[in-house]
Amino acid sequence: MKPAPFEYAAPKTIAEALDILGQNDLDEVKLMAGGQSLMPLLNMRLARPSLVLDLNHVEGLDGIREESSGLRVGAMTTKRVLEDSDLVRSQYPLLWESTVAIGHAPIRNRGTVGGSMVQADPASEYPAAALAFDMEFVVMSSAGERVIQAEDFFVTYLTTSIEPGEILTEIRIPRLPPGTGWGFQELARRHGDFAIVGALATVRVESGLCCDPRIVLFGAADRAIRVPAGEACLEGAPPSEASLTVMGDAVFDAVEDPLSDVHASAEYRRDLARVLSKRAMSEAMSRAS
């Protein structure tokens, strides 16, 4: 279980990194961020790049900064940094919950925010958080910079809309509107495992009625998904058990073709989507003010 041979480059600037990308066959290059998903694939020889381009030495790709609209998180910022950030914990609690649910401490120490986003594992927490927050992804290429909205970013299993030759540099995370309640639920075989299914929910309650409800699922499809049909059931409805039941049924109907594997059948995942979205939304309702 040793990696196949490859060349290695560790550029110091984004320009240098883009330059190296420009000089190589893009199908043969793997960008390495924290490596917590890529290294197992290399060790198992399931990934066989001829060049590993290590982003760990590129300047300016890590750190958190808050602006009026929200957070700007460098793509190479480790999860540990978010976990340890009082700002994230107090002002972006849903992001913090999503962070600490990822794997275990050693994985979060090295794994990066950008790495998880680009890996786009359908059962991982961060892509779901991206949809919950309407995050924006800043990518650079030799042609310049472009911004991709979260809803356009995750394409399918392990695939994003980042083009070969582009590098994710920053994730912009808007603040949730004041009064937004949030909930986070996931079910894994063991604590820290990839989720079988997980759900994030946000909602505001205005004049006793639900407003802008949002439901995001992970582990329920080929990518993290929002469930508009479920959200529609709640818009303008009272935050009640009855509303949650209606919403849960709509989520169940909307999750059409979940994955089936050794840990969970498709029917089980579908039902978990119902159960966990209700639990997450129930938490969100109780937190909404």
């Binding site: 279980m1 290695y8 490596g35 917590q36 290294m39 197992p40 060790n43 198992m44 590993v52 290590d54 540990r80 275990h104 401490a105 050693p106 994985i107 120490n109 090295r110």
Partner: peptide
């Protein structure tokens, strides 16, 4: 493959899987 944690070491004081780093 990064699951068992037996190869944990410290990198700059932080626990790290040494099988998941070059």
């Amino acid at each position: 493959h990064g699951v068992c944690g037996i190869c944990n070491i410290l990198v700059d004081g932080q626990t790290t899987r040494s099988c998941l780093m070059l």
